[in-house]
Design a protein around this nucleic acid. Sequence first.
RNA 1: GGGCAGGUUCCAGAGCGGCCAAAUGGGGCGGACUGUAAAUCCGCUGACUACGUCUUCAUAGGUUCGAAUCCUAUCCUGCCCA
Length: 427
Amino acid sequence: MNLIEELRWRGMIQDMMPGTEEQLLKEMTSAYIGFDPTAESLHIGSLVPILLLVHLQKAGHKPFALVGGATGMVGDPSFKAEERKMLDLDTLSKNVAGIRAQLESFLDFDPAKPNAAEMVNNFDWFQHISFLDFIRDTGKHITVNYMMSKDSVRKRLEGENGMSFTEFTYQLIQGYDFYHLYTAKNCKLQMGGSDQWGNIVTGTELIRRKAGGEAFAFTCPLIKKADGTKFGKTEQGTVWLDAKRTSPYMFYQFWFNTTDVDAESYIKIFTFLGQEEIDAIIAEHRADAGRRILQRRLAQEVTTFIHGKENYEFAVEASSILFNNNTAAILASLSEDQLLDVMNGVPQHEVAASDLEAGKDIVTLLAETGILPSKSEARKLVQGGGVSVNKKKATGIDQVISTPDLLNNKYLLIQKGKTNYYLVKTV
RNA sequence: GGGCAGGUUCCAGAGCGGCCAAAUGGGGCGGACUGUAAAUCCGCUGACUACGUCUUCAUAGGUUCGAAUCCUAUCCUGCCCA
């Protein structure tokens, strides 16, 4: 199975320029994807592009990861409702460095290999191009009419917030990236999310007009949940790839909680399992969905890929204790070390030991530890039956928590709703 | 620069002098059911020293017993004209 066939059955191809498949079959091809340095870590939204690069490299081609130090300064307007906040240079370069470090763990950069991955930063070439040079040498080749006809731009022109010139420029700047990599690195293919199609095509157009060359592209669909809501968000916010921001346990839980419908497509996209194996897993899952075989496997594969086997195993262990029918008893029986091990990935909060000696009502405790944003909210949640302490449902807003309630004389396990755990530590 | 229409609680969007912490919908959160799923049903959705008080309807002033609602100025946005 060639690369395109492989990606196609996985559901990872949305649009493709004619000739792309032939190009990939013809020779080792260099291809790139751009990553936006909006934060110091990538999040799971970037996972698909990363996987595209990994597949590409596995197929013997040469991947380039471009971090957008320059484009990040401008902000991509594609399909966004309004203009993004500008990042300052310091933040930007910090973000670029962080992302670079992460990408290095997913791709093979060994320079001895002919198809070693390479990392590039478009700030490196843009910082030397003056505005005048750019509009003369590059702007000349693309008409405004052309740029405005892009869906991504038109949406903004029709919208209520308008679009600044800066943002409008974006597709040209990104297009230039492709041109630059084409001429400097013989990079003939660009990949990306389908929201990037317009920008990518501007790049191939620029290559055709300015360099008389032919370049190719394909995009992958944007991951959405079956109910149409955004992928990659939880109540705690974005799911990051950095273990310091999203613990392996939380990461594992995110995948574990995938709905049945989504899990079937996710396992194809986010894992490297083969077609037969996936078909078997799906069949097995359908036969007895309650066992969540599909979600378990999905979570296993992705967590292992990102965080390694050991972290995955911790996450499973923690999950099995926290979601056991007999959790209350197990908790009471754990030693402090064991408890901390299990709770490693659970969000932690602190409370003064002296406060608990005197006893503290549950509402105040929830608000002061920061588990809930305000007392009002704590009150409502407790009244609604949404809070448990050490796996026992809170009795009411006047419930008092004091020292005897502590596990190992030191900890409280607070549960909000069915799936959110918090560890409160006395200090 | 001129004209017009606007800026409301997470979003969309009502309200146009007291009955407004502000309709309705969406989203979010929680509960029941279940499988840590989906669908469905139910509740909550500004804060607090909580049957009361306080801060909110772009910003700053003003009119009024009383303003999100009226007036003035300012800022911002869209549309049209120059």
